[in-house]
Design a protein around this nucleic acid. Sequence first.
DNA 1: GGTTGGAAATTA
DNA 2: AATTTCCAACCA
Length: 628
Amino acid sequence: MKYIEVALNLPLKMSFRYRVPTELAARVKIGSRVLVPFRNRNLKGFVTRERKKGERKLKDVIKLVDDFPAISRPLLRLGEWVSQYYHCSLGQSLHSMLPIQRSLKDKEKKVEGKKISCSGNLAQTSGGSVFLLMAEEPEEKISIFLSLTKDVLARGRQVVLVVPEVSYISSWNKLIQSEYGNCVAILHSRLKDRERYVSWMRMRREEAYFAIGTRCVLFAPFPDLGLIVLEEEENTSYKQREVPRYHAREVAARRGKIEGFPVVLMSQSPSLESWSRANKKEYLPISTRATRKAHPQVEIIDLRQEEDKVLSRSLEEAVKEALKGNELAILFLDRRGFSRYLLCQDCGEVLRCPNCNIGLTFHLKGALSCHYCGHEERSPLVCPYCTGNKLRGKGVGTQQVEKEAKTRFPGALIRRADLDIGPSLAGSALKDEVIKGKIDILIGTKLIIKEEILKEAKVVGIILADNLLNLPDFRAGERLFQLLVKIKRSIKKEGKMLIQTYNPTHYSLRCVRDREEDFYPQEMRAREELHYPPHFHWARVLLEGKVEARVTEASQRISQKLGEKGVEFLGPSPCPFAKIKGRYRYQLIVRDENPSRITGSLKGETGYSSSSTNAVRVSVDVDPQELM
DNA sequence: GGTTGGAAATTA
DNA sequence: AATTTCCAACCA
């Protein structure tokens, strides 16, 4: 008799054993999906191991779901790594790797021989390595991309291109189709069931040999994958917010290691993590020809010296100039949906946490708090740096920009685009309007920071850079730098970017204007002292529950345990969103230079999640991006 | 003795 | 995660 272990899509550490009825025995393999009885219902799960003996009476597998194993051996190994590193069950990680619920049917007799032959020729000098491609010019990036992929395809292997968001897919698809013909399969979460199924099957059958998609395309069922390329590797969308909370960059690298192929990260301004790894030769830089073309002018405007805190004189002049030449001007302001910060309009300083150096969150009752370590203080009446009395709560409602622009630039065609107007509308329709020149001044949030829109712009004004710089996030400076570099690289070469700020000497701004490469060593130094990544790995332990006392109690218990183990951690402190859907939320931040020590210290402290009506749910987010 | 609400155990 | 089991507190 044959027995198997099955991983179910439940937050349980254990797998369950079943007996395989004789008539199924030949077809049930490792990686197969099976339907099994569980409690009083039937669940689909993945076969993870085969066993000779069942030491007790086990239930029978009900049926085999698919005509073939849905998960290949290497992908099973990848799933095991994801579940270990990101603290979720194997069933949860495997479930997220297969975006299809229905049964997989295969009428044609697929040649299984090919898979075996591929494992022999994996040995390749670059197999398992990660490369970092920092191309200044988009044309150069594309030409390197094409030469790399051509090479892989010529050796009969397949290519995956991962992009941060769905909107990036169509232009890449056009490019790749025009180069290689109809060989592309597209995969992302917004596809309909049927489309996803067709795409997935085309990859498996090698009817397609090029896959483009968002995160989920990392698990493309190609039999002989030869290359994964990640576009805009610093993009924060690469971190999945739901379980399993994986980062596409890490998963790509791990798949490359398991299956022995190279991974290429592309970026105009890489994440500090990747820059640092490249510096340590963990990632290999791909050298580019130095074809730096003329850059647009960058001007930093000191708002402390300006009468008008919304539109400075220089920005007004620049916009007028653009209007005169019938060119597009963009005014960017990021609305911070939550949390405000306290800024001195005289000296430009911001109230920061003495322990963590992130902007303190300014609450309406006049309290200031740090959500990393839980530090709290009363908000002062005068600025502690210059004793001035112009401390102002900043962050929400910089909405007057549109009103201001209308009075300043009468007759101009002004368009405001943000989430209120609708994200779908802000997409292609807006792009069309921009290209046809139907807009003179475009006012918007991060939504409009798209290459297709920016490339039409002659002038871009950043209304208040401090909004981004003072986000309660240690990566705020890095994010601002990356955003500004992206704008600078995308707008017209003879254009101009004007940055309004109360902190004109900040290196995030200075480096955008003067020497971009100086940013990374400076930011590395800033992160070192406070044990921020990339020097240390972080994991967030999130506690949620309906009874606040229970949540704080549980967080105390965990912090005591961590203390006994001698692990370094911050908190517990209330999350930036302290209550969501009636659940109170607290967090602890565990940090260590070695990610496996973090995993070790958390083992046993938390289930993957335990839930009952009044209990506290504890979950772990390894290498978190935003702590909300 | 019986009901009840919440925590703990169980699921193969 | 979703139930079932366990157990102590409360009641008449």
